[in-house]
Design a protein around this nucleic acid. Structure first.
Lengths: 240, 240
DNA sequence: CAACAATATTTGTAAGTACAAATTATTGCG
DNA sequence: CGCAATAATTTGTACTTACAAATATTGTTG
């Protein structure tokens, strides 16, 4: 058996969509008819269709039928990786300089973003990430003490904050905001760039068990393109 | 039947992962055992597990077993929508001013990015997108003539370029590059911002049938946060 | 003890059947 | 003709069975 039947069926439907033989809003044949056409059981057809539905290419309504989605990707996706992760992926050596690592009272802005009362205690770490000795990002992270009790015991120059935080909680919700900013004097100096050089600021908030538990602000040194992604929206499944 | 059995099983496993009862690399019981435990058929268990696999929470190996992934999202995702789409989503009125709409010879940079010979003919359109009469983005798009023969006949002030391009091809591959830039004099004037105000530049390339067919550069007026996303990585399925 | 063979376990694919639920088409009646 | 009841279609869920393929375990033998 060179390729499972359900994959053959799936790829055939996918191909018809890609070539335009099946157009958005078109109704595809019923499971029964497809099962007849391919001489397979209804279950096999069903599996192929269910996967295409979960991938967003088809939409089905009980009693009515299965239709081609007109959702020709209303958006495309950009992956935002952890800086250390990204540096390694690019084949560089990542080093971390920890500037601050403390417990402190949250200021107005931070407490608002963390959805807690102003003046509450938070953990705070500030660091500079370098790739092959060249600074590429300034990170500032805040964490809620109750969820990360051993935050202050960590050595973030050895293990990335990202790694540590990820190991302590399976996140429920993630919010990312991207903005372009001009670095202030201090950050420009740390990143060894001119104050006129624009930077990308990514602010991320994570929720765990209904509460906002971490706030991260990463300022990327402008010219270094760490935010790129390339992907295939609808790839044919299986080999060949 | 309040909730399908396969969803109950899926959510139970998901819950065990979220609470930490099941940890990364743990092996979960075999289909046979789970079917016994929940008094359902193997198929029903299989469906629950297959969905969790496709969502990236479990990994299976034939003959060996099913394991919890240690893939605690190495990246998070940002959705990049079309400007017109994004403006409507925010409840604003989108207007488009077309500055250029022509056929021309590709310069060195554009032909390199479109993977074609320098000097080849390309379609070119430049426009300013506004939200409630306030300019928010400057777009420059290049398209390969052979794939979009009626490019010049379109009225892009009525129908968005995005819409037109999407209607003509189902894309195979999408590349996005995000950078922070300082706008040049012309773009700053068009966006009605100061030259010191940093902007986000998104460059996108699309592939269709093995060839790069479109190149887009969008400069977002800095302070307007059009790049934000919020999502739940592993949401419990079904109601209740 | 090590190498190999046989066996058991586990997942992968697939057929067939059954009934429920939602939608759409059809029929019959006033 | 219009409306309501009925029938047919289509998807949703679920059970049982069957065998193949990959891996893990156990037992045997030199």
């Amino acid at each position: 058996m060179p390729q499972p039947r359900y994959l053959q069926i799936k790829n055939e439907i996918l191909h018809e969509i890609q070539t335009g033989a099946l157009r958005p809003e078109d109704r595809i044949p019923s499971e029964h008819r497809l099962a007849e056409r391919f001489t397979v059981s209804r279950l096999t057809v069903q599996r192929a269709i269910r996967e295409l539905v979960s991938e967003g290419l088809l939409r089905r309504t009980q009693g009515s039928g299965t239709f081609v989605t007109n959702f020709t990707h209303r958006f495309s996706l950009i992956e935002v990786r952890d800086v250390v992760e990204e540096i390694r992926r690019l084949g560089g050596e990542a080093t971390t300089e920890v500037l601050l690592h403390r417990r402190c009272a949250a200021d107005h802005e931070v407490s608002r973003l963390l959805e807690m009362e102003a003046g509450s205690d938070v953990f705070h770490v500030a660091l500079v990430q370098s790739m092959d000795s060249e600074p590429v990002a300034y990170e500032e992270r805040f964490a809620v003490p109750s969820v990360y009790p051993d935050f202050l015991d960590q050595d973030f120059s050895k293990r990335s904050v990202f790694d540590y935080l990820a190991s302590r909680s399976v996140l429920e919700e993630i919010e990312n905001v991207v903005a372009a900013v001009t670095p202030d004097k201090r950050i420009a100096a740390l990143l060894e760039i001119g104050r006129a050089e624009p930077c990308i600021l990514i602010q991320r908030r994570n929720w765990y068990q209904g509460r906002c538990v971490t706030l991260t602000r990463i300022t990327y040194a402008g010219s270094r393109q760490l935010l790129a992604s390339r992907y295939r929206p609808y790839e044919l499944a299986g080999g060949r």
